[in-house]
Design a protein around this nucleic acid. Structure first.
Lengths: 355, 355
DNA sequence: GTGTTGTACTGTATCGATACAGAACTGGAT
DNA sequence: ATCCAGTTCTGTATCGATACAGTACAACAC
């Protein structure tokens, strides 16, 4: 039989409450008695209050859940996600809070059950597309939710993000300023209907992913300023955020006639895939074809990729802070982080008669 | 006021137990009544049993804790750890079990408190040195523990590992078979006293890290077979598992006179750092100096590094299986995974008069 | 002697569910 | 009519702790 508070209380000859105080509220009893209780507890093999029972009574769990749309392993694979998780876990540690990894996977019943069963004080929604139905379950829990991946549709949600459109506009302006007019975009979650490859995107409002939508908006506006019509931009939708898929998408646009002189990828991973294709084909990035990314993951510097820097660590850190200690002031509940255009060798002036 | 089982029970006019069964044991009541209960619950905004209360009563939490000795962010940084976490989380998902990240950080009171407060059904000890005092707290919880990082001192522990010594012996034999006699070892956690740099390790038993100890033992035995005395082997202790520290360590041994013709690193990360130094100094790996690693992380193939392949994903997967469903048969409680020597271009025959 | 203040501890109600034993039906065989 | 087995539902005890109001008693002021 496992010892409980009562066991210890009986052994010492005090009440259960006093033993509880000895462990959790040292200022509520004399040091002498406290010491005696703690000693007896140790002798009996009682190792402190049961976390589950404590949680039930106190209403606090001491953990936050991180929701990931793809398999949980995504958090350990995608470089930007890894950075984000680092910031988040470091901040959580600081608040003596655990981090529970939760996958929404197929958005099925199992996912919903997992959300309902998760013992957490709040949720951090990281890379979950807004249309996931399991999100209803998340809201239903009535816990604080911090949104670090898509638009705060609900004003109650905590929110940490960057101004995606403004950042993308910087990239777009940089590209057209270099003289590029035949431009290809590699996107992600451009359509809900799971179709991939080349497509036209006449109506941005229908793009399901907030991030893709806003970045596309930024690119479009910048292109428009230079007189490049949105309908003349090549758009390709890639299914998964991997270099391989980025490479496939880049190959597709490069095979078009006329081929684009600039490839604007919606993230660094795709851009790195594109750089790989250029190398294979003997094309020089920044000379023959310019390539841009987004995120500035560590490998971007190595590959000399022009991109947008946004601190994933900082974003993760703030996400954790917000959900662990939700500010009541509405102004503090929405945090927008700065971004910076990092120009490297992967972009350069358009070459006359290139390709 | 948040609705509870009782609220729903009163509304429908059945007992609390029946509502509980409607959610958790559908076979215990008629489909008709179940549907009625579920509908009423939805109307009242009751979203299913409270996870905390359910855990208290049933004694199951539906989550396992992963203990990491350095900051939690280690799990997201070290490539081998990332692979391990992938395997573990995938298996956990499969069992509808959450994964709680826990850091032992400074091995202080906060760490102990975190362990006592963690709502989990079991622990997976990943990269925790055996001497950490917080491990006492872990044992005290009386939960299943799977050991994926150091020797199972306690026969009660579940255990998944590789035969480190045998694997290291393969590497050692490969190196001496190529004719190398002046050999340097880059280790990690070689000593508890936080001293780094060149050192002698006369007594392997005193090496605190199980992994380092066993791998060193394997190298030593292989060297001995070829007549290379252990005391003639250069040994350097690196403080952190990063390429940079590997590079620093490699530079130190290369500055010795006579310089070693082979650098045997205790993991791939250090080996990759060593390869970096060689490149900087204009030395060719596998020609001027041979380099070996351990783990076969993805980048090892890229760098053409000779190393030992052990499946981190498989190890993580099995660790999760063991702790979620601990087998009673002692034979099944200890799993030893196979390893394989992968010979690539970073090793080659010793050059006469090299360096 | 009476009242005030403060510290140290106790007792009961409660958090929200599940386990388990038993009661009340149902339908068919005897 | 009686019995039996099977199904469906109920009632109570319990999981292990914390919240909060309340009691006991010492110290001090007037």
């Amino acid at each position: 039989m496992k010892p409980t508070l009562q066991t210890v209380a009986d052994a010492v000859g005090v009440s259960r409450s006093t033993v509880s105080n000895a462990f959790s509220r040292p200022d509520q009893l004399s040091p002498k008695l406290r010491k005696k209780i703690l000693n007896t507890a140790r002798q009996l093999g009682y190792m402190g209050p049961d976390p589950t029972a404590r949680s039930l009574r106190s209403g606090k769990v001491g953990a936050i859940g991180v929701l990931l749309a793809p398999a949980v392993s995504y958090a350990f694979t995608d470089p930007y996600a890894v950075e984000f998780m680092r910031g988040l876990t470091e901040a959580a540690e600081h608040h003596e809070t655990g981090v529970l990894l939760l996958s929404l996977k197929d958005d099925d019943d199992a996912a919903r059950a997992a959300i309902q069963a998760a013992s957490v004080d709040g949720f951090c929604v990281y890379c979950v597309p807004g249309w996931y139905r399991a999100m209803d379950e998340v809201w239903a829990r009535g816990l604080p939710i911090v949104n670090a991946s898509f638009e705060a549709d609900d004003p109650d949600a905590l929110f940490v993000a960057v101004d995606e459109a403004a950042a993308a506009r910087m990239v777009g302006r940089h590209v057209v300023a270099l003289g590029h007019r035949r431009i290809a975009l590699i996107g992600h979650y451009v359509r809900t209907d799971q179709t991939y490859g080349l497509m036209s995107v006449p109506d941005l409002e229908k793009v399901p992913s907030h991030v893709t939508r806003e970045r596309f908006r930024g690119y479009r506006d910048a292109f428009a300023e230079a007189g490049v019509d949105w309908s003349d931009v090549l758009i390709v939708n890639a299914p998964e955020s991997t270099r391989t898929e980025g490479a496939v998408a880049a190959a597709q646009v490069l095979d078009q006639i006329p081929a684009p002189t600039a490839i604007v990828a919606i993230n660094d991973v795709f851009a790195l895939g594109a750089l790989g294709v250029l190398a294979e084909r003997g094309l020089r990035a920044g000379h023959d074809v310019s390539v841009t990314g987004f995120d500035d993951i560590p490998d971007a510097a190595v590959a000399q990729l022009t991109t947008v820097r946004q601190s994933a660590i900082e974003r993760g850190r703030i996400a954790a802070e917000l959900v662990i200690n939700p500010p009541s002031d509405p102004a503090e509940r929405h945090v927008v982080l700065p971004t910076e255009l990092i120009v490297r060798a992967s972009t350069g002036p358009v070459k006359e008669g290139s390709i």
